[in-house]
Design a protein around this nucleic acid. Structure first.
Lengths: 346, 346
DNA sequence: CTGAAAGCGCTAACAT
DNA sequence: ATGTTAGCGCTTTCAG
């Protein structure tokens, strides 16, 4: 249990004080505090005791001033849409980030961007040198945020492949959306389904586009595409299914670009008296527990390991920082594998 | 649009450089950068131009070192339970905090505490003087986190009344849980209901206890208490309702300590063929949009303004900081009013 | 292996 | 109204 903080009233002990108490120089205390390499064990011990007794904690500002390291990373969340934050999905990713950052002794500074009006603030903050690097989420293809961040020349890793505005060579971590979608549709094909519809996500987001591409890769060549664009919400999935059924009453499978929409699809199917999977097989994407657990029948879906993706973002960033920031070449992006999880719906 | 960052390679310009360029002293530049009070307009203009041309941004570490201000606040989230983060409820509160912090030119540093093993890390961080103050969420009555934070002597405001472990006089922002519960139950009474049951939240949380107390205040004096403790989840609400019905088949109203549990109660009632509100009236607590919108019938509930509560936490903290931290007396806590929202269920 | 000394970039008295 | 000066607390050569 750490000592009591003397508080804002009483001045906190400095290196100087510790040095005096231990009967050594400031330099020696500094060495000990930073690992104690090349200091005689006896002195190390003495210094440690003094630190303990005085309740010494290094002043981070002073340290940053000379080392130019902050041990802090910004997490930038662009939220042009509603809700992204309360997405259990995103929570998992943030948790992965938080844990990995802790493992690297770094702090998480949250920058919540509600719109273009906030870009200046973010830019200023990044320029201010408050953080060693950034992790950013900016799903929308035309969002200018990546461009703004890019101009700041701060090492940054994206969660999800960023849009065109960010320019090429921007490192990111994403799951294999296209491959996962391909697996999902191939599975439906292997079940003997032929009229396979797709409820796409908002096509201004890379993940939605990639999943759509995967659908195109794998769907049977016969017949035409059967696609409606949704909004990644339950409601939009339900509406999309209705439209699809109107257009093609005898469709025998639906691949939805996420679980929430798949859940909406199931609802519409039930309302129309269609059985799942007998009449129509359904596959989702994400394996989002809060949806998948409640669905009836249990939803077959494509799983991605989001927490791991969060951790990978941090590791990638740390590698960039270690290699000396702007000088080094940007590292490769990471694309994580997905896994088809078979349940009752397909 | 801010200039391009010279980047880690090129050294950033310092006050010194700006001073040289503008042909003034460092002190003058400093004054201008910090508001420019008492500097001749002509010079202000000159300095501004130099700042512009050089793309100067103050070094925060250097500034913090001398002013002892960080312009950063820690948000500490204890999460002994699952899920708290993806709670849309909590998102709203965090958003209020984020916005108000931005208005005060402060940054949000997120400290995610997953268990007692993290307490040391938090304590060290707080001791390190990285932040001017903290905002903490620690709903569980016996959680030692408030005690740990208290010992650090860092100004801190709690979201929700903290448990006993924090000691007296700890400032917090909470809604009037007891009064809101009282209103809910009084409303049921005014509807002529007499056998009013309560599905309580986990009674190791102050909010659950307070709502329970409100129930006791207002329930009809006749008959005995009819209470089951739930876990603030939909499922636990459903189970609690089943138990209540077994114990008292002719109950005519249920007040649930939150909307999620109320939704579970509705489910059980429906399964047992009871009509709402004809046979049993139901009232929830929170007015959580994602629940209230889907419920059938629409849920009567007690609304609290969470975003505002988040903002109030920041304002309270800022007042403490302005008044000089530990020296001044801790300010009064803030209890915000609730509002009964009548819908179809009661 | 240890200590002395020189800053990191900025602010805030204190002079002028 | 402006400039001069003395640190803030730490790391890091450079001597010894």
């Amino acid at each position: 249990m750490p000592e009591q903080n003397p508080g804002p009233g009483a001045a906190r002990p400095t290196l100087e004080a510790v040095a005096a108490r231990a009967g050594v120089s400031r330099a020696t205390v500094s060495r000990v505090v930073n690992g104690g390499a090349g200091v005689r064990p006896a002195l190390v011990e003495k210094v440690h005791r003094a630190v303990e007794e005085l309740g010494y904690v290094p002043n981070q500002a002073a340290r940053t001033l000379v080392t130019r390291r902050n041990d802090a990373v910004a997490v930038i969340i662009a939220e042009p849409e509603f809700r992204i934050f309360s997405d259990p999905f995103f929570e998992r990713q943030l948790r992965g980030i938080s844990r990995e950052l802790t493992a690297h002794d770094s702090q998480l500074v949250l920058l919540w961007v509600e719109g273009p009006g906030d870009y200046d603030r973010v830019a200023r903050y990044l320029r201010g040198g408050h953080v060693d690097g950034a992790l950013a989420f900016s799903p929308h293809h035309d969002d200018q945020l990546p461009a703004v961040i890019g101009r700041m020349n701060v090492p940054c890793v994206y969660g999800g492949r960023p849009g065109t505005a960010s320019g090429p060579g921007v490192p990111y971590v994403d799951c294999d959306n296209r491959g996962g979608a391909r697996d999902a549709v191939r599975h439906l094909v292997s079940l003997g389904r032929r009229r396979i519809a797709h409820v796409a996500g908002p096509l201004d987001q890379a993940s939605a586009v990639d999943r759509y591409d995967g659908y195109r890769d794998a769907r049977p060549a016969t017949g035409s595409e059967l696609v409606v664009e949704g909004a990644f919400t339950e409601e939009s999935g339900a509406r999309a299914a209705a439209e699809l059924l109107d257009r093609c009453p005898d469709l025998d499978a639906v691949f939805a670009a996420n679980d929430l929409m798949a859940s909406g699809v199931l609802r519409t199917l039930r309302e129309r008296g269609l059985r799942v999977p007998e009449d129509v097989a359904v596959v989702g994407f994400d394996d989002m527990a809060s949806v998948v657990d409640r669905t009836d029948p249990a939803l077959t879906t494509v799983r991605q390991n989001v927490e791991e993706m969060g951790r990978l973002m941090v590791r990638l960033l740390m590698r960039m920082l270690a290699e000396g920031g702007a000088g080094a070449a940007t590292p490769e992006s990471v694309v994580t594998p997905t896994e088809l999880v078979r349940r009752a719906s397909a």
